[in-house]
Nucleic acid binder design. Structure first.
Lengths: 129, 129
DNA sequence: CACCCTTTCAACCAAGAGGTTGACTACCCG
DNA sequence: CGGGTAGTCAACCTCTTGGTTGAAAGGGTG
């Protein structure tokens, strides 16, 4: 499972998102966190491990009450991904607008002509995910 | 399952993320999409339904080759969420920096004094996810 | 109408995720 | 050293997920 999948999967769970929210206000220990949820400590611990494997959270080793720390930089990963495709889609819209504008221009130049219904499709996409 | 969970869960799958990438370059039909993956058309269709339920994709009803359309606005939902907690964590850092600076100041004012090791913890968090 | 292509539904299966209980390890403090 | 608290591991259960095959609708076009 690649990194991005792990991050998205980690945040797809409401409990884990709530933990992130909780940790944004300050580090906490496993048992402190467990106090907030109606499930066993072990279940909370499992959630924590998911967040940890996704890199959303770190637990610097040390003395007994180990504190869980949120690593917000991981959000940048998601942002980069979404931004990439948001941008592409927007560019496509702009291109489409341009094409439509062009068609309008042509139509108004030589008024009334046959219906040209060519679909500008089928441009092979370069297959990067 | 709430909306945000659906969106994150939808994007937690590599195949579905690739579909989003593919659709960012233009709408496509189910069978066109299916051509790109080494799984049955029905499996692709299932993925599409997940994306659709998450609101990441729409399929305006109409004549037979139904085209799948990407709805990038949904990304705003995720952005809003991440931004919220990123901001909180940053504010917390700033506050921590301020506290540390203050401690340094006090120390340098009346040089050498007893160790005051009060942990500024336990501020009840307002429990919103 | 009959055909063909696209889309959709349904039943089934293997693997994974979220949760539980129970036991075991690690550390701190008296 | 002994006990208590915090953290961890492991086995088990159930429900969901990603995938399969097989079959049924939908809807243009000859």
């Amino acid at each position: 499972m690649d990194r991005l999948s792990q991050v998205f999967a980690a945040l797809a769970d409401e409990t884990r998102r709530d933990m992130v929210a909780r940790l944004a206000d300050g580090d906490a220990t496993v048992s402190q966190l467990a106090g907030s949820y109606r499930m066993t400590l072990q279940a909370v611990y499992k959630h924590l491990r998911v967040l940890e494997h996704a890199g959303l959270v770190t637990r610097p080793p040390g003395p007994q009450p180990r504190r869980v720390h949120l690593e917000v930089e991981v959000f940048d990963l998601m942002d980069a991904w979404t931004e990439r495709y948001r941008r592409r889609a927007e560019q496509r819209y702009r291109r489409l607008d341009a094409v439509l504008a062009e068609m309008r221009d042509e139509e108004s130049q030589h008024e009334q002509r046959g219906g040209h219904r060519g679909r500008p499709e089928d441009s092979g996409h370069p297959d990067d995910s």
